[in-house]
Amino acid sequence: MGDQSWHSVDLPHGRDAGPQARGLLRAALGPDGAALPDHALADVLIVAGELVENAVDHGEPSALGAIQFSWRLHGARVEVCVVDSTSGPGFSHEARDIFDLDSARGRGLMMVDVISERWAVEQDPTSGTTAVSAVLSVG
């Protein structure tokens, strides 16, 4: 399993980005593509959707009004990465541990943490970008 090459697209920074990312992954990794098992594909779609939605909600678009979404199938793992522009104080990996139980939102990174083998945040102050990536076992 796995073609190992990265696939990357610019998605519009807006509400359509999450569904577009999930659609791309479903086509590439679902029954017509790599044919991941249903449970593995569902996990990939949840994590990718959450990372993209976080970039839309908390990041800023590039000068072209986009966020970058990348993925690859690497052996029995799928890696996803979302890059946005940022001008804020930054993001802490520990933010996943801070949420309000009564809030309607705010549990997404906890799901990413549970579903993924690992995930990471890399901020580049020189370029003003934030990359959030996750690796999921699909084999």
Rank of each mutant, 00 (worst) to 15 (best):
M1L: 04
S5R: 00
S5V: 01
S5I: 00
S5G: 01
W6T: 00
H7S: 03
S8L: 03
D10R: 15
D10F: 13
D10Q: 11
L11H: 05
P12G: 03
H13V: 01
H13G: 01
H13Q: 12
H13A: 08
G14M: 07
G14Y: 04
D16W: 09
G18K: 13
P19C: 09
R22C: 12
R22L: 15
G23N: 02
L25H: 10
A27C: 05
A28K: 02
L29E: 14
G30L: 04
P31A: 15
P31D: 14
P31Y: 02
A35G: 10
A40G: 13
A40F: 05
L41P: 14
V44H: 10
L45V: 10
L45W: 05
I46H: 03
G49M: 08
G49V: 11
V52D: 02
N54R: 05
A55K: 00
A55H: 05
V56L: 04
D57A: 03
D57M: 11
D57N: 08
A63D: 02
A63M: 04
A63G: 09
A63I: 01
L64H: 13
L64T: 15
L64M: 15
G65S: 10
I67C: 05
Q68E: 01
Q68L: 13
F69M: 04
W71I: 10
R72I: 00
H74E: 13
G75W: 12
R77V: 03
R77C: 10
V80W: 01
V80I: 02
V82A: 05
V83L: 00
S85R: 14
S85Q: 12
T86I: 10
T86V: 13
G88T: 09
G88P: 06
P89H: 12
G90F: 15
S92L: 12
S92K: 09
H93F: 13
E94K: 13
A95E: 11
A95N: 07
R96G: 09
R96Q: 08
D97N: 03
D97C: 06
I98L: 12
I98T: 15
F99I: 01
L101Q: 07
L101P: 08
A104D: 13
A104Q: 05
R105P: 03
R105F: 11
G106F: 05
G106C: 12
R107N: 04
G108N: 07
L109G: 06
L109Q: 11
L109R: 03
D113N: 10
V114I: 13
I115T: 15
I115H: 04
S116C: 08
E117F: 01
E117W: 03
A120L: 09
V121Q: 07
V121Y: 06
Q123F: 10
Q123M: 14
D124Q: 13
D124R: 09
P125F: 15
G128R: 06
S133I: 05
S133Q: 04
S133G: 04
A134N: 06
L136W: 00
S137Y: 00
S137A: 15
S137I: 11
S137Q: 09
V138F: 03
V138E: 15
G139N: 08
G139E: 08
